[in-house]
Design a protein around this nucleic acid. Sequence first.
RNA 1: GCGCCUGUAGCUCAGUUGGAUAGAGCAACAGCCUUCUAAGCUGUGGGCCGCACGUUCGAUUCGUGCCAGGCGCGCCA
Length: 557
Amino acid sequence: MLIHLRAQLIEVIAKSLKGFFDGLTVPSVEVDVPDDKSHGDFSTNIAMKSTKLLKRPPLETAAAFREAILQGLKDAGIHDKIEKVEVFKPGFINFYLSTSAVYEILEQTLREKDQYGKSDFGNDRKINIEFVSANPTGPLSVAHARQAAVGDALANIFNFIGFQAVKEYYVNDEGNQINILGQSVYLRALERLGQKEDFPADCYQGQYIYEMADTLLAGKKIKTVQQLKALSSEMIRQFAVDYLLSVIKEELKDFGVSFDVWSHQSKVAGEEQITETLSDLQKRGYIYEQDGALWFKTTQYGDDKDRVVRKSDGSYTYFMPDIVYHKDKFRRGFEKVFNLWGPDHHGYIPRLTAAVQALGQPKEALRVLIVQLATLFRDGQEVQMSTRRGQYITLREVIEEVGVDAARFFFLMRLVDAHLDFDLALAKKETPENPVYYIQYGHARTYSIEEKAKIAGLNPQLKNFKNLQGEEELDLLKKIGRFPTILLFCWRQADVFALVNYLQELAGMFHRFYDRKRVVDPDHPDISAERLALVEASRIVMANGLRLLGVSTPQKM
RNA sequence: GCGCCUGUAGCUCAGUUGGAUAGAGCAACAGCCUUCUAAGCUGUGGGCCGCACGUUCGAUUCGUGCCAGGCGCGCCA
């Protein structure tokens, strides 16, 4: 409702002011939401933008504009939604919503319920969002956990505003790391059979390799070294990848994250597809040979230097299958693909962006989001981690220590590309310092109020409001009205932080309302019914928001 | 050396793509429960928006140059 009204305002303003410009082009009209509510619900800077063109002081222009806009609002038939229009200091023209317009927000929310905030903004466009994509060589770490929380929430939001967002996990099931993984399992299996060999430092050191070895031996009913040696290394590799993928899937499931598509490098970027793509790129002049290797001219699209795709020994760099994989994504019809990467990969962005353009896509078709690492703290002390020695905090441990809700919420509390300090002790505290519970508590409160109302025989009203006149009530309603806009902003920013922030503010306004206005009051059933409607609308938005974040909505706390 | 990111309250961070008196949470201090959940509410203090120029009606925001910190720069994945 507010999105629509804002669009109407822009239209009306542009139309009403045409006469002032006498053939000159009207500056583009911007309508913003002021920080300070005393400056109205909407505001435009059009008068100040016009000072130069019209050669008149902004306040004078604004006053004249105001008259024309008032007339324009009448002509457009939306004057009943705007209570007043005022001119302010440097030259702002501010619009104040009428209470009837505010009540429309309430009616809409109650009508649309769990669909409130949904839109067709995305126009069913297909987008892909690839995240986590950890190599299947061990359990998921906290770094993956943050990516999982962000990627899942982003996809939820994008789907809600009308995109067809596909969540995708790219499985690196080939290459050096997988060879080493297979070797690690093989050596541990030998050890279990009594033949202890040197365990190289570059092999995977974690305890889980033993468990895999045990599972392998039991599954294949292997009792002797001879039987083990009869297994092909290919078979062991396959076993290891499958085993770890099922572990990863289980961890993600417990974190509430599921993927729509699992793409395996061995399938989408095998030898055949690589050869095909490579010769295609060669034909189109993107590849040249030097020092026995094949190079991709990524500098043509702004990379610092060209990149090797096939080494002089004939094997491919990681870049090559990645190009093929992204070609595959676009072949599947995605208009835009998002990749969530760790900060250590940021140097890789220019070359992949170049490749995407060489594949004939516009630069914007690929959007890489660098998800910064979370530094874990426990009681103010940084938790030291070392991936090399297999000593890192896993997703599993975070879930067990602080729970899914707190973990997911904390990972979303900052912009994705900003460092995040994650205090484990704080996240599991059930005290006011912990922001997760603030919103959930607000949600739970709505249930307890509605329960009390039911006992008193009171029901929420659905229309014809007139008693919601308090500042707390109108502020809360207007905030509820911003929810759809916030979701669109999340798309524009490619970040969920704005939603987290919004929900905290919304919960704050709800708590304030609760503190100051008695809802359940059998002596005043009319007022109670209207306030109950506001409680329900608040609950709807808190629930819709938390659901998009992947955080649960408790009815009791 | 080159490239990318960051610099805002004691701490952690926002700042709606250039707007109005720069905000929030935490921490500190002072208050509010015989009434719908005190996991809540109210109030107070706290700022050279890293520094300097420039662009303009207007800069925390854009540009340039410095200063400080982080990361990336392999025929690794």
